[in-house]
Amino acid sequence: MSQRRSAALLSLRLVGQNVALTLVCLLFLVPVIHMISTSLKGDMESYANAGLIPWTIDVAKYATVWQQTNVPLLGFNSLVVTTATTLLVLFVGSLAAYAFSRLRFFGRGPLLVVFLAGLMLPGAAVIVPLYQMNRTLGTMNTYPALIGPYVAFGLPFAILLLRNYFDTLPREIEESARIDGASTFAVYWRILLPLTRPVLATVAIFQALAAWNEFLLALLFMTKAHVRTLPLAAVVFTSLYQTRYEHMFALLVMMTIPVVALYLVMQRHFIGGLTAGAVKF
């Protein structure tokens, strides 16, 4: 009797939980739905129709926008920069994190502090010297102009997460390998790194999002049309006097689809990394 009652109570709670969650999720999705619906409206319709339901549906503009802003080229540029940044941060960052967690060397403590000090560095504060650095290195209007700073800005967070995860791994695993004669690098590459895969996925997602979406440095360092990245494209549809919201939002939707897809594909690993304690400092 009481068991049945508690079961009923449980299912009632489950319903309540689901209703609450659905409501909140819908509320959270409204701006996204608004974005998609605006992108479907007819030209200049949104000045008259503020609602979520388009009066006319104009999908053709997606093709126009695709062409006009050269989405394939900009998308390719974004993809190269994002992929390179992410891979570099993962490799270089995990090497350093491994050293900070497992190896002893001169200046280990202070160096870690130097890295962590960069955690909060606001990009806007160092743009001018960064620009001069790119000039000096001759990297203006090339992919490294963005990849370099993106990697540097991403490293502190990656090192922090990865080092802390390495710290939680028991040392016994590697000691037996050591006895079998594995080198320091082999321990990192063959033993620790595979164990870290979920956390690497978490770091990768955060890093890829940051690189894909970055705006300011891309604006200033990529001044030629053939190297520009996607976030710079929205500009085409705003002028001082007029904003073509429908076109702009079509572009915004196209910009967002790849990252959403990436998240959905990586979701399991990403969550796995978080559950494994990726975000622990």
């Binding site: 570099l88 090497l95 350093a96 491994y98 890295f115 370099g148 700073p149 990697v151 990192y188």
Partner: peptide, 17 residues
């Protein structure tokens, strides 16, 4: 061992420090 940190440090010194 410091070699493991050097790549990260290099990028970091150039573009942050």
């Amino acid at each position: 061992n410091v070699l493991y940190v050097l790549p990260a440090l290099g990028v970091y010194l150039l573009f942050v420090a």
